[in-house]
Amino acid sequence: MSALLSSPILRRTLLALVLFVVSVFAIDLLSGFRQGQVASIAYLAIAAGGLTVLTGINGQLSLGHGAFMAVGAYTTALLLGRWENMPLLLLLLISIVVTMAVGAAVGVAAARLHGPYIAGATLALAIAVPALAIHFKDTLGGEPGLRVPTRDVPPLADDALFFLTGTDTGTMQWLATVSVACLIVTFLLLRNLSESRVGRRWRAVRDDPVAAQLAGIDLGRSRVLCFVVSTATAGLAGSLMAMITRIAAPSGFNLVLSLTLLMAVVLGGLGTLTGALIGAVLLSLLPTFVTNFGSGMGLSDLQAAELAPLVLGLTTMAVVLLAPAGLVGSLLRWRQQARLSRS
């Protein structure tokens, strides 16, 4: 038992399992609307988690992760359009693999660039990919996009969840549960990866490429690998997003989505997975909260709607000014300083 707990990987896996069981119960207690919110926080956090690894740990700034989410989402929409009863796991896996393939192609090109040039190249991607969907409108549905059919909860999963919670599982509850499970698994894998030798190499490449190269690290390979891992999470997030929002349409994957992901990462703290999660929570809940607060204060619907982007912008500015390392990053730093001054 103690051997089990002394290995970090096993300890984290155990923690992940516990978290999953707890979240199954927690999701069951929520209303349908809240379950939807949990689901969208989860997919946003998955993509933000991948981006925080790429940007925070490997030092590559991607402004185009929304485009990779689009690849995942369209793959899912096309597959479900043809085989409506495809097993969920297979569906997610194919979406991830397709996105990884696209990510590898882009990553090979991106690895030759650095700093603002990667940002520029990925920015082009974020603009081009939705346009592709409009251009190939016979297969990809054009402007209105592809509608994603809602699937029934698989009987086996329904029975398993019934065994745990004693209630029947609604579609939204099922999607929220799947999304949270994906989030936990993704974060577990990302965490283990970034603590491993691979992760240390990524950090070395970020901190000093020349020193890393002298130490025998292949810069290009390391960068491409990190890029592909990061796009895999974006593909997974996109696939979940298509199922949760029930549509894959070009206007859903505009530049704002890519920037939202980056904002989640910056708000929470670059390079920390908890930060990515907190950023995703903030970005999902804050606009709704502010809008409802605004209407509650007697603003017209139009004014309340305009209040949300304003508050979001001010929050980001405040975080960047007051806590430049992000919410979690600043907290960690502050704790470290406290410990240092104590010793």
Binding site: R34, S251, T288, D301
Partner: peptide, 23 residues
């Protein structure tokens, strides 16, 4: 009458309609 802003983005439409119907 409750009108919600979707910014002409289907992803947002799906979210705000969820809110209108479920919440």
């Amino acid at each position: 009458y409750n009108v919600k802003d979707d910014g002409y983005n289907p992803t947002n439409t799906s979210k705000v309609v969820d809110e209108l119907v479920l919440k």
